[in-house]
């Protein structure tokens, strides 16, 4: 069950006003959100997922002063979750291929800012078809770069460049829309 942004934000602001019950409700509601966030990114490492969920809850608790009540709660939450994930990789000295880092950094920010209501398909339609297709295949349908390249009969670096340029254009577009 997913809790809505409005409800989470309400619990968060009540918690900031000193309401311990709301704070507890918030932390409990975050557990499934964070579990699915980390599971999608650490396939099969269930212990790591649990550790990261707990570390993130602690961060949400100790860093709650940095939440700005004027801004969306989930953007703040996922910014912390993403930082914990990157820190986790750094501690484990796991190196992440550069295109994955870009996906971690850019897609998330773009999703957060545009919100679930914005139609991704509509945005992709505004890009040149090659870029839109590369993004759709590698980031939505979950193909690897190599698979997308052979599907489109183009080079792998061509796919990477298309994804990169497309994401950049989308990020710029979304920034322009929301600010």
């Amino acid at each position: 069950m997913q809790t809505s942004e409005g409800q989470l934000k309400q619990w968060m602001t009540d918690g900031l006003d000193g309401n311990a019950v709301a704070h507890e409700a918030l932390l409990r509601a975050l557990v499934p959100l964070l579990q699915s966030f980390y599971r999608r990114r650490l396939r099969g490492a269930e212990d790591d997922v649990e550790d990261l969920v707990q570390e993130t809850l602690i961060s949400v608790h100790t860093k709650r002063e940095t939440y700005d009540r004027e801004r969306p709660f989930t953007a703040w939450l996922y910014a912390i979750a993403r930082y914990r994930l990157i820190d986790h990789f750094r501690r484990r000295r796991v190196s992440v291929p550069i295109e994955d880092v870009e996906a971690i950094l850019m897609i998330e920010g773009f999703e957060d800012r545009s919100g679930a209501s914005m139609d991704v398909g509509m945005l992709l339609a505004s890009l040149p078809p090659k870029q839109a297709r590369a993004i759709r295949q590698t980031h939505i349908e979950g193909m690897s770069v190599a698979e997308a390249a052979s599907a489109a009969a183009i080079g792998e670096s061509d796919v990477k460049v298309s994804v990169h340029r497309g994401l950049k254009a989308l990020a710029a577009r979304v920034r322009g829309v929301t600010l």
Binding site: A20, H23, L27, Q54, D68
Partner: peptide
Amino acid sequence: MNVDQLIDRLSQDVAPVSPSAHSRRI
């Protein structure tokens, strides 16, 4: 410690935070 215990412990300590706390700290 499992996640329920952690949440119980964190919820013991919920001091009010004023909206200006962040800038005041800087």
